[in-house]
Amino acid sequence: MSEAKTRVPIEAGFFTVPEDREEPPRLLATRCNACSEVFFPRRLVCAKCLSQDVSETEVGPRGTLYTWTFVHFPMFGSSNPNMTRYGVGQVDLPEGPRVQGVLSGKRDEFRIGMEMELELETLRENQAGDEIVIFRFRPTEARAS
């Protein structure tokens, strides 16, 4: 893909899109100033103690795989012809939130408890030629290999 293309999030307000394609994205979260609980996605009221004294924060890019599955159907919203099957998982971030999302990798790669890292996946292009992206997790060790 051309470096000149702009990457646009599928929906604003959920994750960062770094200019440097080598840099992992981070998730846009909320920290409660009263009880310190952290939430993804962002919210205006603490779900634990109902305080409205909350601050914006960023979380990730690393976490631990809590559970996973592998879906044997093409991904909704993706025009990538290779996206005929895909992983889905829940990842526990050290900051607190458990995040449900798409996984990148093969079916036999995933193990509960393994370290995962955020990246951006291009779903399709919009009419302006921008890449529509969504966050996903991949096994951290996959990057080294």
Partner: peptide
């Protein structure tokens, strides 16, 4: 595919959620 799938939580097959329970 791709039409009307403009929100961040619409790309995943809903069945995956209960499969996540099963795997855990």
């Amino acid at each position: 595919r791709g039409i009307g799938r403009d929100t961040i939580d619409s790309v995943i097959l809903p069945a995956a959620f209960f499969a996540l329970w099963a795997m855990r």
